[in-house]
């Protein structure tokens, strides 16, 4: 049973790390396009869209890399959990306001509806919690 738990924990860690590393890499190439996708949410003022577009992919890449390297797993999963929470709030606000836009989650222009993205982020949140708690139990 312990072996099963260990495999499950490592799978969650690698999957979550891989997804966030990928999400960061595909966005880092086109910060202006990503700023436009953030602007579609109509939450932030004009200039802040660019600041978020310039920095968020790097946070995703660093936290994702740390998870994959099995180093600083708890703080990295906490950061990813925090990001997911922000994404969930932003996507919920889209649904409440009835805005139909691309979520801007991965590659610019790859259309995902807000509902799909919301459920996906809930799944990532579960992975983040499993990774966080699993790492604590392992004491690494």
């Amino acid at each position: 049973m312990n072996k099963f738990k260990s495999i499950f924990y490592h799978l969650c860690r690698l999957l979550l790390g891989g997804v966030f590393l990928y999400a960061g890499v595909v966005k880092v190439m086109d910060p202006v396009g990503f700023a436009g996708e953030i602007a579609n949410y109509q939450i932030l003022p004009y200039r802040l869209n660019f600041l978020v577009a310039a920095t968020l992919p790097f946070v995703e890449m660093l936290a994702g890399s740390l998870l994959m390297l099995n180093y600083k797993v708890r703080p990295a999963s906490l950061v990813i959990g925090g990001l997911n929470l922000v994404f969930i709030v932003a996507l919920s606000s889209l649904l409440i306001r009835g805005l139909d836009i691309d979520c801007g989650c991965f590659r610019p222009g790859a259309h995902s509806s807000a509902t799909t993205a919301l459920w996906r982020d809930v799944g990532f949140m579960v992975l983040a919690v499993v990774t966080f708690v699993g790492n604590k139990r392992r004491g690494t």
Binding site: V32, F50, T55, F58, G82
Partner: peptide, 28 residues
Amino acid sequence: LLRDAALIVALAMLVGMAVNIRLLWNIW
């Protein structure tokens, strides 16, 4: 835990700002 998480975010943001300094300067 909180210090390490804050360090991860701060370091990544600094790198992101450094890489995109020209774009951010133009906007600001």
